[in-house]
Amino acid sequence: MASIASQVVFHPVVSQSLRVGNTTLGRDKTYRAVQYFARFVAWYLLSKGKTVDAARWNALKSHLALARKLLRLGKPVEHLQLALKAAMAAAPPAEQMSTIARQLAYFGYLSFDALVWASNIKFLTLTPETAQKIARISNRFWLAGIIVSLTHGAIKTARLTKEAKSLKAQHMSEKDFGEAQALAQQVVAIEAARVAAREQIYIDALDVWLPASALGLANMSEGFLGIAGFLTSIMALRKSWATAGASSK
């Protein structure tokens, strides 16, 4: 019995799950997945007229949203650091500028989001109009960040596609075995970067409807928004899972 228990407790999947959960990003994306799943379930139950059951899921969604705001209190500074690093790094101008703009937009989004959290927990006393205005500013920064991220992803994907084609052509014509192997490795690295850039585009293409709907710029149902947020959370969690798996090797 003890042997079976140890096999379960020390199973690699359990260990990797703990490594993901030990990171702020891992916890945030896990909470986010449950939050948006709860949003979808609440919408579904309301559509069936089950208001009591829907209220439980709505409460779960609201509490997780509040908890995630607390987890993200230090994130604005992190995005400022990332913007500064991008400014100092060598990169194509368009990609560099879009990276800086994206990080600054997320800095603004999370800074105002922290004020929303402080208002929600009654730490700050704001009028309903002021609180609503701050929430709208936060969502505008969020929307701007996603739009810039989509632009960045498109520019980067186009560049990587062009580079991959060029390297593949060089690889096909290269007669030296060592040079051919080096080119092949470069192609693999570029393809991996291109896949990552495309995946971020998919995430942004779904997430963009969340702030757009909050601002009244789109009229998506709560069910669609719940599923969209859930899917992008799972996609982000998969990245954290892969990172945790690589760090254990």
Rank of each mutant, 00 (worst) to 15 (best):
residue 136 R to E: 04
residue 67 A to G: 06
residue 49 G to H: 02
residue 7 Q to F: 00
residue 30 T to L: 08
residue 96 Q to Y: 11
residue 146 I to P: 03
residue 181 Q to P: 04
residue 184 A to C: 12
residue 187 V to D: 04
residue 194 R to C: 11
residue 69 K to V: 05
residue 154 A to F: 09
residue 243 T to C: 09
residue 48 K to S: 15
residue 109 Y to W: 05
residue 37 F to G: 10
residue 35 Q to T: 05
residue 56 R to K: 10
residue 76 P to Q: 01
residue 198 R to T: 14
residue 215 L to C: 01
residue 98 S to Q: 13
residue 147 I to A: 13
residue 213 S to W: 01
residue 125 T to A: 07
residue 93 P to N: 07
residue 102 R to N: 12
residue 98 S to P: 08
residue 32 R to D: 10
residue 113 D to Q: 07
residue 184 A to Y: 11
residue 77 V to W: 06
residue 165 K to E: 12
residue 247 S to K: 08
residue 10 F to H: 12
residue 238 R to M: 15
residue 209 W to N: 13
residue 206 L to K: 00
residue 127 T to I: 10
residue 127 T to W: 08
residue 26 G to A: 02
residue 112 F to H: 07
residue 167 L to Q: 05
residue 125 T to Y: 09
residue 54 A to T: 05
residue 33 A to I: 01
residue 60 L to Y: 00
residue 227 I to C: 10
residue 58 N to C: 08
residue 88 M to A: 15
residue 186 Q to M: 14
residue 51 T to F: 11
residue 241 W to I: 09
residue 148 V to I: 04
residue 117 W to H: 03
residue 209 W to I: 09
residue 177 F to W: 12
residue 128 P to L: 02
residue 130 T to Q: 11
residue 215 L to Q: 04
residue 159 R to G: 11
residue 98 S to K: 14
residue 229 G to T: 01
residue 166 S to L: 15
residue 247 S to G: 05
residue 146 I to L: 08
residue 241 W to S: 13
residue 187 V to G: 09
residue 214 A to I: 03
residue 112 F to K: 05
residue 200 Q to W: 15
residue 98 S to W: 14
residue 40 F to G: 07
residue 145 G to Y: 03
residue 16 Q to H: 05
residue 237 L to C: 04
residue 149 S to W: 08
residue 204 D to M: 05
residue 23 T to D: 13
residue 38 A to V: 00
residue 101 A to L: 10
residue 217 L to T: 03
residue 170 Q to P: 05
residue 219 N to E: 09
residue 25 L to V: 12
residue 65 A to R: 03
residue 62 S to P: 05
residue 242 A to T: 14
residue 219 N to F: 15
